[in-house]
């Protein structure tokens, strides 16, 4: 069991369930620890995606990860969305449900982006109450991820990490620490990523995200389009020393390579946690 305060399990090393890998997974049942599922892709379908998800959830541990909860929005909570999310979590026996510390729109509009919060006392108080309400509806603690951000509000009086940490403690929610996002945001804002990692409350971290990104020279975009860079692995090792290691997930969403390549990248995390890397050729019988 992990060291987080809810004793949520260390699921090992997983990857995101993506459409391009459906056929491979169903045909080969690859030896992977777990899958993270993008909630919104399965909430309004009775077609093949749901069929595949049922098959996957039957065989592997599953965690739900969303992008449209908009927990920081000043719009009312979307109760229809939360009801469907809970139903999907129950259906898949998801170990936990996560989303982002962000807002995605107001006045009923969804911009479909993870928009940054101003880190103020007002937005902290507001978001604490929203997270508590969501956890009550979902009947399980919500897990929130630090998003990649490309701007900072001049009105912010908190650092992102202190805002997230206080929110997690006051609202009693978990943290999905996206190590790549820490690197991306700190680069974009000229901050120290080591200091960010060191200030995250270790007992709140229930999951890691790892991914590649796109460096544009003047800023970095969180594109999930490449291998994890050494600096991000270094941050991952630094955080694992504090948390003892928790469930780790590799995201790859653009130019997605074969299942084996994505899985192999995820398994590199084992080495960075001081665990032996399995012989993938043997595991895949190739």
């Amino acid at each position: 069991m992990g060291r987080n305060r809810w004793n949520l399990p260390d699921l090992g090393f997983g990857i995101g369930l993506r459409t391009v890998h459906y056929s491979y997974i169903l045909a080969n049942h690859p030896p992977i620890d777990w899958f993270e599922v993008l909630s919104e892709n399965y909430m309004d379908t009775g077609g093949r995606p749901l069929y595949v998800l049922d098959q996957v959830a039957e065989r592997y541990p599953v965690v739900l990860h969303g992008v449209s909860m908009s927990v920081g929005s000043t719009d009312p909570l979307n109760l229809d969305y939360l009801k469907k999310l809970k139903a999907l979590a129950d259906r898949t026996r998801a170990h936990w449900v996560s989303d982002h510390l962000c807002w995605t729109g107001v006045s009923g509009i969804n911009v479909h982006d993870l928009l940054p919060m101003p880190y103020t006392d007002e937005s902290l108080r507001y978001t604490i109450e929203r997270v508590k309400a969501v956890s009550e509806i979902l009947e399980r603690p919500l897990v929130l991820e630090n998003p990649s951000t490309y701007l900072e509000f001049g009105t912010s009086t908190w650092s992102e990490v202190d805002f997230l940490s206080t929110l997690a403690q006051e609202a009693d929610c978990g943290i999905l620490l996206d190590v790549n996002n820490v690197y991306v945001s700190c680069f974009n804002h000229g901050l120290d990523p080591d200091a960010f990692i060191d200030r995250v409350p270790a007992d709140r971290v229930v999951q890691y995200h790892l991914a590649g990104h796109t460096h544009k020279g003047t800023h970095i975009l969180d594109t999930h389009s490449d291998y994890v860079i050494d600096e991000v692995w270094s941050l991952y090792r630094r955080s694992c020393r504090r948390t003892g290691g928790v469930a780790t997930l590799l995201e790859w969403d653009e130019n997605i390579p074969s299942f084996e390549v994505v899985h192999a990248e995820a398994l590199k995390a084992r080495r960075h946690r001081g665990l032996p890397e399995p012989d993938l050729k043997r595991a895949y019988g190739t």
Binding site: E40, M43, D44, T45, S68, N78, G105, I109, N110, H112
Partner: peptide
């Protein structure tokens, strides 16, 4: 018609 759904599928 900006998006008013939680999913891009709509």
């Amino acid at each position: 018609y900006p998006s008013r759904s939680y999913t891009l599928n709509r």
